[in-house]
């Protein structure tokens, strides 16, 4: 699959959140893909920019495997509900049924899917879609497991919810102590690469 050919925009350009102070993002994936890891990190980083944040991981009964998702809300107003059926942004990391997930996108919202896993196109015309070859990019960077950071970088570039630097700070706090240096630098590279993918598309736009 050609990387660039995937960067098509469907429907309106709906970056309504840009520059605003309310973000609701749901990240769905399979257990082990790290959806919850980046979700929590985003919430942690968001604490230094927003008055209120919430992070809600929702997963099935099994300890590992199975589908999981999390919702992160960043806001300057008090947060009423920690989860919405239709969040303003939706990242689909895994190969779950696209038809079902795109139903949950809010009109004018943002949808990101892994174009190296899901070959289908989003049929909704009222959302902004980003086809991010996250798994492929991660593999090229040396570890397929950092696809989650590719997504996070892409999301942050697209919405500017928080800066990449804030995420890196939160990450450094988490992986402090030298033991994790290799992982830390890989995560950071994945983050930057994800942002670059969106940047390039914005250039094309």
């Amino acid at each position: 699959m050609q990387m660039l050919s995937n960067y098509q925009v469907s429907g309106c350009n709906a970056r309504e959140e840009k520059g605003m102070d309310y973000f609701a993002l749901t990240i769905a994936g399979l257990g082990g893909q790290g959806a919850l890891v980046i979700g929590r990190l985003l919430a942690e980083a968001g604490m230094s920019k927003y008055n209120h944040v919430s992070y809600f991981p929702n997963y099935s009964a099994a300890m590992r495997g199975g589908e999981s998702e999390c919702t992160i809300i960043l806001s300057n107003e008090e947060i009423s509900s920690p989860a919405w059926l239709e969040p303003s942004s939706l990242i689909l990391m895994g190969p779950a049924p696209l038809e079902e997930f795109e139903q949950r996108a809010k009109p004018g919202g943002l949808v990101m899917i892994d174009s190296s896993l899901v070959t289908k196109q989003v049929s909704r015309k009222d959302v902004e879609v980003f086809y991010i070859p996250a798994s492929k990019t991660a593999t090229e960077l040396g570890d397929s497991r950092v696809a989650n950071f590719v997504f996070l970088g892409a999301y942050l570039k697209a919405t500017e919810a928080v800066s990449l630097e804030l995420i890196e700070e939160a990450l450094e706090k988490r992986l402090a102590g030298g033991k994790w240096d290799a992982l830390l630098s890989l995560d950071k590279r994945a983050l930057r690469e994800g942002a670059r993918l969106v940047e390039r598309r914005q250039g094309v736009n």
């Binding site: 749901t26 769905a28 994936g29 929702n58 997963y59 099935s60 009964a61 199975g66 589908e67 999981s68 998702e69 009423s80 509900s81 989860a83 919405w84 059926l85 239709e86 779950a96 049924p97 079902e100 949950r104």
Partner: peptide
């Protein structure tokens, strides 16, 4: 509750505000 494919599907099991 939102239960698209039963309880094993991500995001399921919640009475969302939209409902």
């Amino acid at each position: 509750r939102y239960t698209p494919r039963g309880l094993m599907a991500a995001g399921s099991g919640i009475i969302y505000p939209e409902k």
